[in-house]
Design a binder for these strands. Structure first.
Lengths: 243, 243
DNA sequence: AGACCACTTTGGTCGTACCAATCTGGACCC
DNA sequence: GGGTCCAGATTGGTACGACCAAAGTGGTCT
């Protein structure tokens, strides 16, 4: 009986401060491989001079990059670490670097996301209350009305998965999904050409999930999601290849 | 033909700077729920006064907390956000807050981790080269020698999963695992009483995985991992309950 | 009661200064 | 030549003070 205010969540550019700018530039340089792991980053004073900023701003920037586990700050110098050992939070920048997202990375993301969705479904469905089941069915029925418009289906799908996530009640997965969401989804939605799923596939997805929800069969819901994500991956790969 | 220097990777307390201290304290206060979401954090100047630190140090601290998506810094004041919307990186602090880790959270972690392990296995096994298969089998045989000593098996198990991860070659999962590792594993290893898996269970795990690797049957390896993590969860839950 | 405006507070940035840890290079000794 | 050792330069850690623009505050006026 609350929230749902601030409906559209208009995202003002999250206040690009000087330190964030610097952090972004330096982060991207590291991700681009312009420094070898173990190598020293230019000193704070040098960076400050280069960006025409104060050392304070640079320090804030480096402090952020350190949180990404991309560098190791120590007296004597900040050293670059392996990108493979970094935090999830580098995924977004990693994706957004080329003019077109790296196809492999996108596929890996979708693969991973599908596994998390499956996981959520299998954990949520068995513990459904009657009210929750009805809620989910309602959402699915609503989704069944927009099968040909990806634009209007996507947010409903997202909401559906969020509801499932709330029921599964696994904070770890929730936080992982947050990060993937934050890192990935927004960039994915700007894809051109947008992959277009066939209405039949979507109908199959919704119907499959509905059956699973009705019967309390988590594996059925998960399977429907599997199929959906598989075709999604194929389409996205195709879209990226032709771009 | 390189690396493998700095064998033991002695981790000196990662240089607890003033800003990190402040960040930790404030972060924990937020995680502890001492502020309501939407509420304003004390001003940088107030925090500086409270900690007897400079504003610069406080700003670096807040900048780090902002990266955790726990606060939203804006002119006018920093506002607290929902913990549920935060980054994975809050998991560690969240676990380490009570004298004993929260049992539910630990279980959720193990559940999630098992899914990621299963995922990695199913993706890695089908694309094994001969050399990789031999490598894995060798590792498993080595593991079969330490079945009764959890202390010596654990690192081998970890190495095995890392190898699988390298073969699966999914950067997204890799980064997620990094974070879970960074957030969780170290704290888990300090558990008392340590959960003790029965040697028979471990033998079964290793044997099951070996068979799967040999036959190129990813699902078999995944199943063996499933069983293992299930009993692990039961034991950990028991250990935490009796603590 | 609502609109409007001046004042205060708050974050964003800069500059300078000092300390301690680290690194660097050259003198020195074997 | 190769290793050792020490002083000076470099680097990060921290502090204080100052100014600006944006956001919040409260009181006045209508």
């Amino acid at each position: 009986m609350s929230s749902m205010n601030s409906i559209s969540q208009i995202k003002i550019p999250p206040l690009m401060t000087r330190s964030h700018e610097i952090a972004n530039v330096v982060r991207d340089e590291i991700l681009r491989g312009q420094f070898r792991p173990g190598e020293r980053l230019p000193s704070e004073r040098d960076l400050a001079a280069r960006f025409g900023a104060s050392r304070g701003a640079v320090r804030e920037a480096l402090s952020q990059i350190e949180q990404l586990r991309l560098i190791d700050i120590q007296p004597g110098g900040a050293r670059i670490k392996e990108v493979n050992d970094a935090s999830i939070a580098v995924l977004g920048p990693l994706l957004g670097m080329g003019s077109i997202p790296d196809a492999d990375l996108v596929d890996q993301f979708l693969d991973t996301f599908s596994v998390l969705a499956r996981f959520t479904a299998t954990r949520a469905i068995p513990k459904l209350s009657d009210a929750q089941r009805i809620d989910l069915l309602t959402q699915l029925d609503s989704m069944a009305d927009d099968l040909d418009s990806v634009e209007s289906l996507q947010p409903k799908m997202r909401a559906f998965l969020m509801t499932l996530g709330g029921i599964a009640d696994n904070l770890v997965v929730r936080l992982i999904s947050n990060d993937l969401q934050a890192q990935f989804v927004e960039r994915m939605l700007q894809l051109h050409p947008r992959p277009s799923l066939k209405p039949e596939s979507l109908r199959e997805l919704v119907a499959g999930m509905r059956l699973g929800v009705q019967n309390g069969d988590g594996e059925a819901v998960a399977s429907a999601l599997d199929v959906h994500f598989l075709s999604m991956r194929a389409l996205v790969a195709q879209a990226l290849a032709s771009a």
